[in-house]
Design a binder for these strands. Structure first.
Lengths: 146, 146
DNA sequence: ATAGCTGCAAATGCTTTGCAAGGCC
DNA sequence: GGCCTTGCAAAGCATTTGCAGCTAT
């Protein structure tokens, strides 16, 4: 799907989208954050990346970012609601660009993660929390052995 | 709930249960494995421990076990179907003594984990896997912010 | 100008591994 | 006796942190 045009002209999300998005959540649109946000959101809302993934991708595209900054940025984005953390493996943390309510298919062998649209799965009879505590989130992971 | 009798007389599971259980799955009943198994299963099937937890507990009771052996043992038990791994945090791995199908409440602040009986929750309309792959497991985690 | 960011490298913390010594069958 | 286990310490890895220098506004 690569084209000959340079990557900054090649995004479905225009520059101003990313920029405004950062401003809106109160993060200074620095070069690194802009670049990472563009990578993350350019193909719509269906990416699942690790810090390592995103760091490699950035470097591959010639963006100078340190791994530490990628980690910091991913956590900032998550905190601001631009990303969602998905915990499926103890060894790696995935970040998901789809912040709406949904579950995941997880291919354990390949490490691939796939969204399950909220309307294609349904939990009936959610039990009450033992102490009446408020539910923050419900994670559903369907594990697949391949 | 502590009594004055020594801990080995104090278990709801008799010694031979643990011993046979180990034999049955093909693990040599060594001193360490027996001791850890007794700790894990003594209070029925509702424990959620980390390696660190179990290691501390063992040492508190005067059982000489190294942390590495606790890790190895937990993984062996898991592999043999005596335990189940629960992944809720990227920083820690929990092991659950309840191997039947069930979900979990997870109290994020305190790190407490609580079983959700399978019959008190239900997923309706499980979506087919994209490629017809076989489902290995479905994890349900209800996160609570306290 | 200045508060906030970034990069690097070092530190951290959980988990795994290598290998010699010990224990079960 | 022979093979599986254990223990320890060291290694491994993903992630976090401290701090000096940079940069948006």
């Amino acid at each position: 799907m690569a084209s000959i045009t340079n990557s900054s002209q090649n995004n479905s999300r225009p520059y101003t989208f990313t920029l405004n998005q950062l401003r809106k959540v109160g993060l200074r649109p620095t070069r690194q954050r802009l670049a990472l946000a563009k990578l993350l959101f350019k193909d719509g809302n269906n990416r699942h990346v690790t810090a390592e993934d995103l760091h490699s991708e950035a470097r591959r595209e010639g963006i100078g970012v340190s791994l530490a900054t990628v980690y910091n940025t991913l956590h900032q984005f998550t905190q601001k609601g631009l990303l969602r953390e998905v915990i499926v493996e103890s060894s790696r943390t995935y970040f998901c660009t789809n912040t709406s309510d949904h579950g995941h298919f997880f291919y354990e062998k390949s490490g691939r993660l796939l969204d399950i649209p909220a309307d294609s799965i349904e939990i009936s009879r959610i039990p009450p929390t033992p102490d009446g505590a408020e539910i923050k989130d419900i994670d559903i992971i369907i594990r697949i052995d391949s």
